[in-house]
Simulated assay, not measured.
Amino acid sequence: MRNSNSWRKPVIIVGIALAVVLAAAGGVLLGNDYRFTQTAVQIPTPDGQLDGVLTMPRTDSPRGLVVMVHGDSAVDATQDGLYSPWFEGAADAGFATLSWSKPGVGGSTGDWLDQSMDDRAAEVSVAIDWALGQTGIPTERIILWGASQAGWVMPKVVATRDDIDGVVAAGTAINWLTQGRFNLLADLDHENATEAARAQAVAESDAVRGLLDRGASYEEYREITTDDPPMTAARWAFVARNMHADATADLRASAVREIPILLLIGEHDRNVDVDETERVYRDVFGSALSVRRVDSAHSLARPVVEDSALVGALIGTVWPRALLAPGVIDAYTDYLRAID
């Protein structure tokens, strides 16, 4: 899956500069005062450790734990602070949240680009088992929250465990290859590409897929690609390892658990064919599924946030709750409150 957090770095870089200016001017960033407490945690794994954060609600009787499963790219435990509205939404429903930096990010050991989707699912289970062994972490109810690429991870976890009580899927896809083609064509449409440019982009995409199908070397990819910048060798290996991912069978295996599923969909998602995702999820989960469509891009942020780094930076600095589309966090909190 292509990087669904492409807007994140410029937003943060510009946002930091703006925060410094506002702080120097004596501005009080009330929008960054959240209704939760947060502590750093270290989760031991067979390969080292994962550095994470545990967010707790400000209540004496927390009801359960949300376990965050990231999408693509090198994401840290808080996604540079952009997870805070999600943390707060869970806390308002009485849920703690556990999140960690991907392997190789921050203090987490390893390299997330060395992982398969099965590896990622195993990592999530390690984190859940760790939480179950800790005093003070409310694990009476365990909910998986996952974005984008997590759609190929969470069903594997649910299918192999009997202690998952719900799933929140945000902008998840079904098939890696068809998702990539959808993303390519949607971006070309968004850019008003000419027919010649479209034909060239599709032809190159087909050529790259052909190289991947026959296990070609990274050097062969570099000889034909016009990507600027091109994939790194590590990214090439990651894609080759995961390109045949398809969530359908794992979704069907997970449906046996009959737990409530919330699917959050952005109406302006150019990364994922959300109509396909909703169709498959409805077929698999039936009445266990709730779907909420919002006026957002793939990340569930307001479209203007993804289209303008400056606007995103201003909102992210002064009132980060407003980065996400209206209704997103309300739907999330309502879902958690309804969990028995």
Rank of each mutant, 00 (worst) to 15 (best):
E191N: 13
G15Y: 04
T277F: 13
N32C: 10
S125K: 15
R241V: 07
L54R: 00
V53C: 12
W176T: 12
L177D: 06
G94K: 00
A331H: 11
V328E: 00
L98N: 07
P57Y: 02
T172K: 02
M231E: 05
L289D: 12
A193C: 01
R282G: 08
E258R: 15
L323Y: 00
L314M: 11
A131G: 09
M243D: 03
V53W: 14
R2G: 14
V202H: 04
V168T: 01
L212C: 06
L251K: 03
R141S: 04
V21G: 09
A240T: 03
N32P: 05
G286F: 07
G31R: 04
Q38H: 08
H268W: 12
P230W: 07
A301D: 11
R58G: 14
V75D: 13
A147S: 15
T172M: 09
A25C: 11
A96N: 06
R161L: 03
A17Y: 05
G26T: 08
G312P: 00
H298P: 09
I265T: 09
R58P: 10
E204Y: 04
A234M: 06
A325H: 05
L323C: 08
E219S: 13
E88K: 11
A19E: 02
D162F: 05
T135K: 15
P44L: 05
A74C: 07
S108T: 02
V21S: 08
V280L: 08
G107I: 04
G26Q: 07
A17I: 15
Q149E: 15
F36V: 08
L314E: 11
A233C: 06
T178P: 07
R198Q: 09
S4A: 15
D334N: 13
D227Q: 15
A203N: 03
I164H: 10
Y335W: 13
V126H: 09
G94T: 01
N271L: 12
G146T: 01
V208M: 03
Q149G: 10
T135L: 12
K102R: 14
T172V: 15
A237F: 13
L263C: 01
A90I: 00
R214H: 02
G171E: 06
R292H: 11
H70E: 08
G71T: 01
R302V: 13
D163G: 12
P229H: 00
A90V: 03
V167R: 03
T277C: 03
G48N: 06
G94F: 00
L82H: 12
S84N: 15
G215C: 06
M68T: 04
A121F: 06
F285G: 04
V167K: 06
Q79Y: 14
R63Y: 03
G94M: 02
H244V: 01
A90P: 07
L30R: 12
